[in-house]
């Protein structure tokens, strides 16, 4: 990897200052995507601003009817959190399906969300549970946050500080993992929220996470796997690679959605 300067930020303000003064600075969370990218010389920031020293950005707490997870909380911490396991078990389970145990000990929710990999797991949970992303300057609804392939609503100099998940009545995540990378070929998060609304969020299939409106409507009428059996998924715009064709991904959206529904129906 190319040379760079390194700054371990002591606060969010300190991180912002350092990021703003760099010509091509990058924020470093767990580094599970950024460091491999830099090793391949696909990214060459002049400054890395490490967020790991900011205690305010870590930890999991309950605030009213929300679970608030600090951006620098690792996947392993979310997976093993007694609070998340009790309040939103599907979220704890999803965190335990990311990568492998060693990656889960370093990778963070903030890093994953900011990176917006089209095959990442967290985006499905954020959109599926109608979560809110909190940054140093504002709150962004998950529906507006994920824009496109590796593209989010974040400004150049904006730092995610936490993600808030409203408690759901019931929720489940099913994914078809790539057997080598464990990224989702397709992952579907199904939830019934406190206001009775139903959400079906799909990751891995398209450029970015998206909601499957037809399935949401059908599940609103009857929350059973049979209710979404006949719904055809249009895969015209889906991802296609050596692991799966667009058509196969379209098929998997239905299969994963039905399995998720069956798990909690």
């Amino acid at each position: 990897m190319y040379e760079f300067d390194y700054h371990k930020a002591v606060s969010v303000d300190d991180a912002l200052k350092s990021l703003t003064s760099a010509s091509d600075g990058k924020l470093l969370a767990g580094g599970m995507t950024l460091l491999p990218t830099m090793k391949q010389r696909l990214a060459s920031p002049d400054v890395l601003v490490d967020l790991a020293g900011i205690d305010d950005m870590k930890g999991i707490r309950k605030e009213g009817d929300q679970i608030v997870i600090g951006a620098m909380t690792t996947h392993a911490e979310v997976n093993l959190s007694a609070l998340v396991q009790k309040e939103i078990p599907a979220l704890a389970e999803l965190a335990g399906l990311i990568g492998d145990p060693q990656v889960r000990n370093r990778g963070t929710i903030g890093g994953s969300v900011a990176n917006a990999d089209p095959s990442a797991d967290y985006p499905a949970a954020l959109v599926g549970l109608n979560a809110t992303v909190t940054t140093n300057s504002r709150s962004i609804a998950a529906d507006e946050f994920f824009v496109d392939l590796f593209e989010t609503a974040l400004d150049e100099e904006e730092i995610i500080t936490s993600v808030s998940f409203p408690l759901a009545r019931r929720a489940a995540y099913m994914k078809f993992p790539n057997p080598a990378s464990r990224y989702a070929v397709v992952g579907t998060f199904v939830a019934e929220l406190a206001d009775n609304s139903i959400r079906v969020a799909v990751t891995g299939a398209g450029g970015s996470v998206f909601r499957q409106a037809e399935m949401e409507a059908a599940l609103g009428k009857s929350f059973t796997a049979d209710a979404i059996e006949g719904i055809a998924v249009d895969g015209d715009e889906f991802n296609e690679d050596i692991h799966a064709s667009a058509e196969y991904r379209a098929h998997l959206v239905g299969v994963m959605a039905r399995r998720a529904v069956a798990k909690i129906a």
Partner: peptide, 18 residues
Amino acid sequence: VVHVDGKPVKSCTALVVQ
């Protein structure tokens, strides 16, 4: 894989400065 503060991590994907 080595242990950092008691947890297994992949040492090829961590900077010493971190």
